[in-house]
Design a binder for these strands. Structure first.
Lengths: 157, 157
DNA sequence: ATAGGACCTCAACTAAAGTCGAGGTCAAGG
DNA sequence: CCTTGACCTCGACTTTAGTTGAGGTCCTAT
């Protein structure tokens, strides 16, 4: 084992410290969410702030935000220099709005559920449960857990 | 157009009233979340309470609960008789707990995000953002948006 | 009776977020 | 020298939640 605490991290170290599988880190890199320097032997070396990027990615994931959206957000961090506190703070503020919105949605839904399904209401047209924000979703085929859920209200392109 | 307001619904009517595509209703039926009678000509006929089932399914979806879990819940409704108010209320109560838990998770996360990413904290081991419930997830291959998120805390089988 | 829409089945495709495995380097220890 | 462990790439596979299309039936109004 190499017990070096170098300035840079190997992918294995990043994986262990972040709790994210190596294969997932590869995947994130392929998606452009993460970047690395390569050594002479073609191995990845990550700067320290990658830890933060990964933490951010996972945090976003946990609340159901798709990687594409996370990628968009991260893309607005400077890629040349290491992001400053201010860069991160801007990003954090943006996500805070997103999370607030989601919490609000969820709360509304919970209340609608208690009022509505619990009470025996049968009308679909009137029901808050049935129309919780009328997302007229026909966006394409396949799984679309996110959009249908009407969840992300960060600037849509 | 048939303007009949019969006791039963065709799949087209159920689709329109619920806002769910016919293909999705087929899919739900295949997954056992929904059931129907067949006419002589092999067409589906739904009872009125299917509307409520579908609304429930979508509501659960919107908050990120996978169909399998919804199916489990719905399976505990009586299939022979039309579910009573009490049947639904039981179910609703169970979900309320689920939603409360999720809201709590999200809120915690939001706060951690503001404190932590905003402030320049770099330690992964200490960071609430990085370890928001330590889900040691290695459950199998493929997409697992739900389990990794550590989200559902309804009785696990 | 016949055209039109609504319905049926079934197979194939899409998309997200990864995992897994094969086949091949690289570096250090014995 | 050789083995062991970490790393590399690339392609195939997985799961969830559907959609799309082909090919065929049913029903109802003209």
């Amino acid at each position: 084992m190499k017990a070096m605490t170098s300035a840079e991290l190997t992918i294995g170290q990043l994986s262990e410290r972040s709790g994210v599988a190596v294969s997932a880190l590869h995947f994130y890199e392929a998606k452009g969410l993460l970047s690395s320097r390569r050594t002479g032997g073609n191995q990845r070396r990550y700067t320290r702030d990658s830890l933060r990027r990964v933490a951010f990615i996972r945090a976003a994931q946990r609340v159901g935000i798709p990687l594409a959206m996370v990628g968009e957000a991260l893309a607005r961090l400077p890629d040349a220099r290491t992001p400053t506190r201010a860069d991160w703070a801007r990003l954090s503020a943006a996500w805070r709005g997103e999370l607030d919105a989601r919490i609000h949605q969820l709360t509304t839904l919970r209340d609608a559920l208690s009022d509505c399904i619990g009470c025996g209401c049968l009308s679909m047209r009137r029901c808050r449960l049935a129309n919780p924000g009328d997302i007229a979703a026909t966006i394409g085929p396949g799984a679309r857990r996110f959009d249908e859920r009407g969840a992300c209200r960060m600037r849509r392109p």
